[in-house]
Design a protein around this nucleic acid. Sequence first.
RNA 1: GUGAUUGUAGCUCAGUUGGUUAGAGCGCUAGAUUGUGAUUCUAGAGGUCGCGGGUUCGAGCCCCGUCCUUCACCCCA
Length: 421
Amino acid sequence: MKLKYHVPRGTIDYLPAYFEKWKAIEKIWRKLTHVYGFKEIQTPMFEHTELFIRSAGETSDIVSKELYTFEDRGGRSLSLRPEGTSPVVRAYLENSMNNLPQPVKLFYLMPMFRYERPQAGRLRQHTQYGVETIGSASCFTDAEVIHLAMSFYKELGFDGLKIQLNSLGDKETREKYKINLINYFNKYLGDFDEEYKLKLQKNPLRILDTKEENLKPIVENAPKITDFLSVRSRNHFETLQNYLNDYQIEFSLNTRLVRGLDYYNDTVFEVTSNKLGAQDAIAGGGRYDGLIEQFGGKSTPAFGFGAGMERLIFAMEKHSLNIQESSNVEVYLVAAESVAKQRTMDVLFELRKERISSDLDPFFEDKVGKQLSKAAKLGAKFAIIIGSEELLNDTLTLKNLESETQEKISLPEIIARLKRK
RNA sequence: GUGAUUGUAGCUCAGUUGGUUAGAGCGCUAGAUUGUGAUUCUAGAGGUCGCGGGUUCGAGCCCCGUCCUUCACCCCA
């Protein structure tokens, strides 16, 4: 059959088999965020474009080339949200959450949209799960969020994930560092192509995480931002490392780790896997103490991380981790003869009234074998067979499809037994 | 946005130097089996070979364009 339509580039259909994994993961995510004291928030899928430009930075790729922007009928410029932090911060301010006990700890699970070329582990619509702790400058907050992320991955069964940690210091640190870095790179301008020369002007920090082989030695010997940290920033960074050590969270320092969003300061981190190809980051986040003030609120420190659900599922496949929550129907009813049709329907709705997952073949095909085969294919654990024999004795035949044993028992007994599980 | 790569049945793929009616396995449907799932056997459905144009007596195969897939860059989850 020739289909007229298919999903837009970079999007996927979330099919039942995928959702079996998704739901099992989401369950653990919800459990852990609750255990760590976070509450759920969701924001609209689109916001005023201005919000993203202001927060992520005009020169950031997310804003300059990846935004899905449209004008609504009222002439407003709106954009599908490319990331979660700025909408959550907007919601925090708009709903006066600064009047709640601080810090306010929020988690989310919501779709994001970025106009990018799709690639392994990268989509145009993807779903991010993440947390934001707003209102705490405490190093404990950094540690607790990283701790949450790692417990999550541990519970999912991951082994061999790496945490990369760095500190970007405060604004003054970065200004000072930038000047130093530019001076350093200027000595190697001959090795830079046009693209990198432009980058050097716009955002020299980005050169640090280059994949260009011939630039790597130069980057290797570049000044390190951690050597420029203020006393306060250095204390914060060292205390965090101590906390992580205290709680046996392994990490490696990576002074070349810079993140793509302009609002970060001090702590930044990424969780990476070596089995994902070029897109190796499973989660990323950091501290953004200046963003709330930038949005018109009182100066308020904050820390958070975000991570991609689809990439997580992709990573779990690569790590051979299997997790799923069956969505198969539990009981399949088989009407063995047409005289039993009415009774079969009655039993079905009795079972459903008792909230036992059950179904039947709406075509009421005569062949028992065909109906049983359908039951098996649908993954039902039990079949209940009803024919003239059962009608006479007022019993039902309960067949365990796994052990292939069957017995004749009454409906109340079946209900009692299935509900006990 | 840049570079490369892919497209034949629901899925995985074959298809000769361009040649007549495009195949296989799996899956699906039906029957063998009128109250029992597997296996087996038999039969069947399912393709304008991504789309558009060109070359040719003739195109799944060659050429151009386009879309999609995949991978990498940029960047990111």
